[in-house]
């Protein structure tokens, strides 16, 4: 099922990836190639088959409720693009 330019723009917004004018056509073509591939799934007979999310059907292990992480803020923020007074700076958040 081929997708159109408008769909690509919506996807790019959902995924927060700026779509530049010069690559838009290539992006759409590439995605449509992949969609042709995955559309082969439609032919598969999967009636009554339960989905498989994990290869091994194990269940979740639980962690005891203990404070085990010592937070070294300076070390963690050494890789941050912009911090001030221990906070990560971003353009103003408007709700």
């Amino acid at each position: 099922m081929a997708i159109q330019r408008a769909d690509i723009e919506k996807l790019c917004y959902l995924a927060r990836i700026d779509l530049t004018e010069d690559t838009a056509a290539d992006t759409a073509a590439g995605i449509n190639r992949v969609l042709e591939l995955i559309d082969q799934l439609r032919a598969a007979d999967t009636a009554g088959i339960a989905p498989l999310a994990h290869p091994l059907e194990e269940t979740q292990r639980l962690r005891e409720d203990r404070v085990e992480e010592k937070v070294d803020r300076d070390a963690l923020q050494a890789v941050a693009p912009a911090v001030e007074s221990g906070l990560y700076l971003v353009p103003r958040v408007i709700e």
């Binding site: 690509i8 799934l41 598969a44 999967t46």
Partner: peptide, 26 residues
């Protein structure tokens, strides 16, 4: 990322993601 976003987005989840997981079991 864009293909993955598409496969999970409203209206396509069942046709792609859910179906792929069923195929995964097969």
């Amino acid at each position: 990322i864009l293909v993955g976003t598409y496969c999970l987005s409203a209206g396509y989840y069942d046709a792609y993601y859910h179906k792929a997981q069923q195929v995964r079991r097969l």
